[in-house]
């Protein structure tokens, strides 16, 4: 195993967190890091995948799922999250939806020097909306996903998990 692989956030770990937290539906739009995870999710009988063509749709779908008794997870990229501002406001915050959004952190670098404005505005966007978030970069960080689920349920609010694993994350 390479060093990169050893420090990666493995899709198996993410899938395990979904199952552990009782996720029933994954409402998602692919980003550059989710291909292998997609194959795993597709093969998992306890999950139903709901693909969207614009990330804001994921918010209203997740709201309906949650209000009617299911447990959705939203899986999108930071670019799409920012596109979804009004849907986040109205459907998730406005209806007190306890949902976790796993958000691919495009442009994230550990050293703070980024060349991608998607990364520049991601955390500022979340702060503006008052949405709490956790950064997950590798398997050792994975327990933060469960923390996010617990917090969402306790506070009846959306909570974001930023997936800062752009280079070796979910692709194979």
């Amino acid at each position: 195993m390479s060093d990169a692989a050893a420090t990666a956030l493995s899709p198996e770990t993410v899938l395990g967190e979904m199952k552990k937290n009782g996720v029933t539906h994954v409402v998602w739009l692919p980003d550059s890091e989710t291909n292998w995870l997609y194959l795993l999710m597709k093969a998992e009988p306890s999950l139903r995948l709901v693909g969207v063509s614009r990330e804001g749709h994921a918010c209203s779908i997740a709201a309906g799922l949650s209000v009617a008794g299911a447990r959705p997870l939203i899986l999108i990229q930071n670019t799409g999250m920012m596109e979804s501002g009004d849907s986040l406001r109205g459907w998730l915050l406005g209806l007190n939806i306890p949902v976790v959004l796993m958000v691919g952190y495009r442009g994230w670098t550990r050293h703070g020097v980024n060349q991608d404005s998607a990364a520049t505005y991601t955390e500022r966007f979340l702060m503006a909306f008052g949405i709490n978030y956790y950064l997950v970069e590798n398997d050792a960080d994975a327990p933060r996903i469960s923390i996010a689920f617990e917090e969402a349920e306790r506070t009846k609010r959306p909570v974001v998990v930023l997936v800062g694993d752009e280079y070796h994350g979910f692709n194979r």
Binding site: H25, R48, V50, V52, H57, A58, C59, S60, I61, A62, A63, G64, L65, S66, V67, A68, A70, P72, W91
Partner: peptide, 8 residues
Amino acid sequence: GFALGVAL
């Protein structure tokens, strides 16, 4: 979208 979520 909301209605779809409820239906599912």
